[in-house]
Amino acid sequence: MQYGISRIFNISYGAMMTVSACVCYYVDVDLHTNLWVGIVSAGIAGSVLAVASERLLFAPFQRRRAGLFTLVMVALALDAFTQNGVIAVAGPGYFSFGLPPQQVYHVLGTVWTSLELITVAIAVVAMLFVHILLTQTKLGKAMRATAADPDLAGSTGINVRRTRTIAWAISGVLCGLGGAVLTISTASFSFFVGDHFVFVLFAAAVVGGIGLPYGAMLGALIIGLTTEEVSIFIPSLQYVVAFAILILVLLIRPSGILRAGGRQRNDVMAS
């Protein structure tokens, strides 16, 4: 979503997840509050981080029309900075939520823990929220317009800067929630928790189509489900399969992945 709307591929997403997870941990365990309070504060932390990095770092570079290489480098720098910042402040190591044993539910013949149910619920609510936001609201329309053509969107009276910032804020919340839920569901985490999820996000974006929020969701589902299925049977092949999917998509539908970009090019040619 961040990429789709502001054309910045934010590699530091993983680090943001880590930070949010830390906040969640701190609020929940160190401050002895409710787990929900922790999750909510993780969402807030994620959004604050996202907006700060967009406003202070990416937007200025974009206003200069910096190349994408520059933006990727900035994102990597931000990632290195954030991740190492966390390590410098908190020290390396593993953390564990001392969660009570969970109640087990049986749904349609499968076994779920309450935590897994909460995770799925949060994911569904988030997807529904994004869907309604993009299709039903004026803000969503503005976001899609900004994604398609920022200059044109600006000239039709859309406040591109504000739209982008809001998009980053929302995706920051989602990112923070994701980080918190992820670490809670795995019960413990180290500071590199975000790293391995970054590639799932990439894959989601590439397979599903860059710049298309639905594409990203679809891609995440495909990649997530296939790799999980594979990991049940042959755990060591999980990443090999992810890699194979990536290569296949690139070889078979290199233009399909770039649907948004490809359409633009055709328009230029037709004119």
Binding site: F69, V198, V206, L251, G261
Partner: peptide, 29 residues
């Protein structure tokens, strides 16, 4: 064979990053 296919430059960067991250994961697993 797949990462140098004609594509926009930003996309190439992303594919390369993925190749790198996935390759490390494969080796570790």
């Amino acid at each position: 064979t797949f990462a140098l296919r004609p594509m926009s430059k930003d996309f190439q960067a992303i594919v390369m990053i993925m190749v790198s991250v996935i390759a490390t994961s494969i080796v570790e697993s």
